[in-house]
């Protein structure tokens, strides 16, 4: 029998698809009857989606611009 602690410890393994069929079965059975673990698992997935939506510090579409490319290249030339 899995405990709630086991559920919290293996949540990432399940989310990343790194578990066996048997362990998935007992994981989801536990979620069926445990409200707090269901909540934890749901909110963990929400946490992950939230991190994924956090804007990057530098916009990867715009970066690097021509000035940045020049700067990096010139430094590289100086160094060599």
């Amino acid at each position: 029998m899995l405990t709630c602690k086991d559920i919290s410890e293996t949540a990432t393994d399940h989310l990343e698809g790194k578990t066996s069929f048997a362990s998935r079965l007992s994981f989801y059975l536990h979620l069926l009857y445990c409200k707090y673990c269901r909540r934890y698992y749901r909110q963990m997935k929400l946490t992950i989606r939230t991190i994924q939506k956090l804007p990057e510090a530098k916009d990867s579409e715009e970066f690097p611009d021509d000035a940045e490319i020049d700067r990096v290249f010139e430094k590289l030339r100086e160094q060599s």
Partner: peptide
């Protein structure tokens, strides 16, 4: 191994 301090229920349900 049971929740001593269970996760609280968040109002938000989307990122």
């Amino acid at each position: 191994g049971h929740w001593g301090q269970p996760p609280s229920d968040w109002q938000a349900d989307a990122p």
